[in-house]
Design a protein around this nucleic acid. Structure first.
Length: 852
RNA sequence: GCCCGCGUGGUGGAAUGGUAGACACAGGGGACUUAAAAUCCCUAGGCCGAUGAGGCCGUGCCGGUUCGAAUCCGGCCGCGGGUACCA
């Protein structure tokens, strides 16, 4: 009997696929195409189990599609620009470029043994000048088509390091290296006009039927269409009126103040000659720029002394306050506050002792608001205190519409639709990114670089010993001739947000070496991505930006109209987690928790302990794998000890793909044992002599059921369900007394059904059983409907919703007959005690419920 | 703070309005073996009952809709993702 030697088998079949060029994607109009793509990785330097799971899922889809006659495109690349490379250069020296390319080499080496059906000839990294040069060309086309512009935007400023910080570099309001309190500072930045497409990006979500509903909902909320009233408050001092936007104009009678953002023009204007206000605004500008930091900051207010007139009652004056929770980016940067029906406003009014006026109550409870704002659903009816449009009982929605109508008819305001989505700021004050291809000329201003000068390559001779952008302090790189007048000019030193890189790589894969961003024929043939797979963490930004980019590329002629929504189907997979082992008895010298490697701990006496010291360990299950927690499982180790097929089988089994999967050593061991068993069974079947045997029917029926269920699982991302079915079918096969021909057929089918998950083992078994050619090229088996029909069904009998008995009946038995059988059943008669049931529900093929 | 998810045996999970716990791990028992490994077979939510028959409880918590709820609705608690310069 031959043993299952994964390393040998896997090497052999990877060579066979390579020799046959099995996965090279070539345009072929005679075949239906299928483009499957997993979100490409950041080259961190190490493949982790999350990658393995993600790519294995894509690989299952790709291999299954190959087996069903599709021309499959399944490429791989690297999202290679970004901060970690610069951080590494600062921390350990070296150059981001060398660090990145060496990481890519390592990761490719780690990926190849997985036996993925990738077309490696299409591989690229976004930091290849060949790629980012085309991205610069796209930028210039966007500029020409009015899709990019410059404006001021707020960044995190580290006043000690004199540099811009990313949000993740701000910890508790302080710069991560300097420890200085971070300030919000304005800078001129480049922006993509994504907000011009808000409505279109929102409405088109309805067409994305094969996207998870939750992702569409998240994008819908992110884009945030709202209808509200825009109007102006007249000032008592005859200054410029203050324009506000509100989604709750119906609560205008509950207004207690007008609030403006610290970044509002009025705030800035007053700041110049008011030191007290300047101090207040400086306080407001402390801390990071994230929405979270702003929303959770302690509420601060400053009374400007300005007074405005209430639009419905000119005698009613409202104070104008500057409030730190009002965002300049949303609406007009000014609001009116109705504390009774908005918790933030209420908190602010209680702090600064401003009036709280109820404008409506619940129908059954007219209690005035104290410290909890009354915020019913807009669809809920409420009782109005004194509604100017004459409403007494109405929903918020009705009241809002009535208010907008009234304002429009009286001419003091208008209903407007606004979006939460802001334009996409793409400038980064960093080295390791795609240079923005523009030049600053004293005479001509901002001038686009000429396309023939692309790519504008990053200089290699830079150092990272000082904070800030090395491009700024490079002695010569910035110097150039103005593309317009030829005079000496300076290059833009900002580089692009790495989200730009990942917003079109899927299109580039269709023609990765072209000297234009895309090639029309290739884009037309391969786009769209039929199945996109990636983490839920990209639900909003990456996917929304990519949807915008596809539209922008279409406008510039780089993608066909049909590719405006580039991803036909989306699947979001969960993370791979692993228990963490935290020392329960001590911390390190800095008071931080100590985490132990799995190899350092042991289970005994019903507890978990550190082997060496005997200290008690707290086991925290299902934690995201993270280097600092010492719970990272290295796929390379798994592949070395068990083989790629075991790793692939394990990450697909047990957990549904959209959920996190917990990596356990015992689970991997079990996967390996199972694959060995399949190999053993197949070897036995291959060498078995024909002799006396039982009926083939039971085995063949199970085989057809397996074909149906496994196929369904593979086609609907139910890989765990497919695998559970394959376990069952393997057991049936192992115990079967069928003849050798039937067993050979069943085993070959088993190999085919397993092939998307365990491609190497399946090829091996296929060869053992004299299958034709490679199993990857064999036609996917089809279930015979006739073999799936069951003669009898088991019907559970419930009494008052609780299962009490069951009967087996012919599958096509009429309901009346079933009723008779049920009423005659001993369990039912004894419970009824001669009485008639109140109700009898027969759900054909499923269940019977007797209500007593 | 706000938006979106998730919560089921000792463990990963199955069942998306119809038999809760498929399949697997760990556990227990047995076969084979001089022994071990490997393999194979059986067992398995909790409680009551006698180990049987049988009964009761049970899908984070509280309430509701339904003949019937893990599944739908409302409210809470906990965990995770996102929050526009992490990728």
């Amino acid at each position: 009997m031959s043993r299952y030697t994964a390393a040998e088998i896997e090497h052999k079949w990877q060579q066979a696929w390579a020799k046959a060029d099995t996965f090279k994607a070539v345009r072929d109009p005679s075949k239906p195409k299928y483009y499957v793509l997993e979100m490409f990785p950041y080259p961190s330097g190490k493949l982790h189990m999350g990658h393995v799971r993600n790519y294995t899922m894509g690989d299952v889809i790709a291999r299954h599609k190959i087996s069903t006659g599709h021309n499959v495109l399944h490429p791989m690349g690297f999202d290679a620009f970004g901060m970690p490379a610069e951080n590494a250069a600062m921390a350990i020296g070296g150059h981001p470029k060398e660090w990145t390319y060496s990481n890519i080499d390592t990761m490719v080496d780690q990926m190849k043994p997985l036996g993925l059906s990738l077309d490696w000839s299409r591989m690229f990294a976004t930091c290849d000048p060949e790629y980012y040069g085309q991205q610069q060309a796209l930028f210039l086309d966007f500029l020409e088509n009015d899709l990019v512009y410059r404006k001021n935007a707020i960044v995190n400023w580290d006043p000690v390091d004199m540099t811009v910080l990313a949000n993740e570099q701000v910890e508790g309001g302080r710069g991560w290296r300097s420890g200085a309190l971070v300030e919000r500072r304005e800078l001129t930045q480049w922006f993509f006009k994504i907000s011009d497409h808000s409505e279109e990006l929102l409405d088109a979500l309805d067409t994305l039927e094969n996207w998870p509903a939750k992702v569409r909902l998240m994008q819908e909320n992110w884009i945030g269409r709202s209808r509200g009233l825009q109007f102006s408050f007249e000032r008592t001092d005859a200054g410029e009126p203050i324009t506000v936007y509100t989604t709750r104009p119906d609560t205008l009678m509950g207004a207690s103040f007008v609030g403006i953002s610290p970044d509002h023009p009025i705030s800035k204007e007053m700041e110049a000659d008011n030191p007290e206000l300047a101090t207040f605004l400086a306080e407001c500008r402390k801390g990071g720029t994230t929405e979270e930091a702003i929303e959770t900051a302690e509420k601060l207010g400053y009374d400007t002394g300005i007074r405005v007139k209430h639009p419905l009652n000119p005698d009613w004056e409202l104070p104008v306050w500057i409030a730190n929770f009002i965002l300049m980016d949303y609406g007009t940067g000014a609001i009116f506050a109705c504390p009774a029906h908005d918790q933030r406003d209420l908190d602010f009014c209680r702090k600064y002792d401003l009036p709280v006026i109820d404008t409506f109550f619940a129908l059954d409870d007219a209690k005035p608001v104290e410290n909890t704002a009354f915020v019913p659903l807009k669809s809920e009816k409420v009782k109005w205190v004194n509604h100017f449009a004459g409403l007494e009982e109405a929903t918020g929605e009705e009241a809002i519409n009535a208010t907008i109508d009234l304002a429009e008819s009286q001419g003091w305001g208008e209903g407007v639709t606004k979006f939460r989505l802001r334009d996409w700021g793409l400038s980064r004050q960093r080295y390791w990114g795609c240079p923005i291809p523009v030049v600053h000329c004293d005479a001509c201003g901002v001038v686009p670089e000429k396309k023939e000068n692309l790519p504008i390559e990053l200089p290699d001779d830079v150092t990272f010993d000082k904070p800030g952008n090395p491009l700024d302090r490079h002695p010569t790189w910035r110097d150039c001739a103005c593309p317009s007048c030829g005079a000496p000019a300076k290059r833009e030193t900002d580089t692009m947000d790495t989200f730009v890189d990942s917003s079109w790589y899927f299109a580039r894969f269709t023609a990765p070496r072209a000297t234009t961003p895309t090639v029309a024929e290739d884009a037309a043939y391969w786009m769209n991505v039929d199945q996109y797979i990636g983490g839920i963490e990209h639900a909003i930004l990456h996917l929304l930006y990519s949807r915008f980019f596809a539209r922008a590329m279409h406008i510039c002629g780089h993608l066909p109209e049909s590719a405006k929504e580039p991803f036909d189907a989306l699947f979001t997979q969960g993370m791979v987690t692993h228990a963490i082992f935290k020392n329960a008895e001590r911390t390190d010298e800095n008071g931080r928790a100590i985490y132990h490697y799995p190899a350092e701990i042991e289970d005994r006496d019903g507890g978990t302990f550190v082997k060496e010291t005997g200290e008690k360990v707290t086991v925290i299950p299902s934690a995201k794998m993270s280097k600092s927690k010492n719970n990272v499982v290295d796929p390379v180790d798994i592949i070395t000890s068990y083989g790629a097929d075991t790793a692939r089988w394990f990450v697909l089994s047990d957990s549904p793909p959209e959920r996190d999967v917990e990596w356990t050593a015992s689970g991997a061991e079990a996967a390996f044992k199972h694959l060995s068993r399949v190999h053993r069974i197949a070897s036995d079947v291959a060498t078995a002599e024909d002799g006396p045997h039982g009926s083939d029917e039971a085995l063949l029926r199970e085989m057809h059921k397996a074909i149906r269920d496994v196929t369904l699982g593979v086609e609907s991302f139910g890989f765990n369900a497919s695998i559970a079915k394959l376990y069952g079918f393997t057991n049936t096969l192992a115990k079967s007394k069928a003849g050798s021909a039937a067993k050979r057929e069943a085993t070959k089918t088993l190999a085919q059904l397993m092939a998307p998950m365990t491609p190497h083992l399946s090829e091996e078994i296929w060869q053992l059983l004299d299958g034709d050619g490679l199993i990857i090229n064999a036609v996917w088996p089809a279930a015979d409907e006739a073999m799936l029909v069951e003669a009898n069904v088991t019907l559970p009998i419930q009494i008052n919703g609780k299962r009490r008995a069951e009967i087996s009946v012919p599958a096509d038995l009429a309901n009346e007959e079933i009723e008779k059988l049920v009423l005659a059943h001993e369990t039912v008669t004894s419970r009824l005690e001669g009485a008639q049931p109140k109700k009898l529900i027969v759900v054909p093929g499923r269940i019977v419920n007797v209500v007593i």
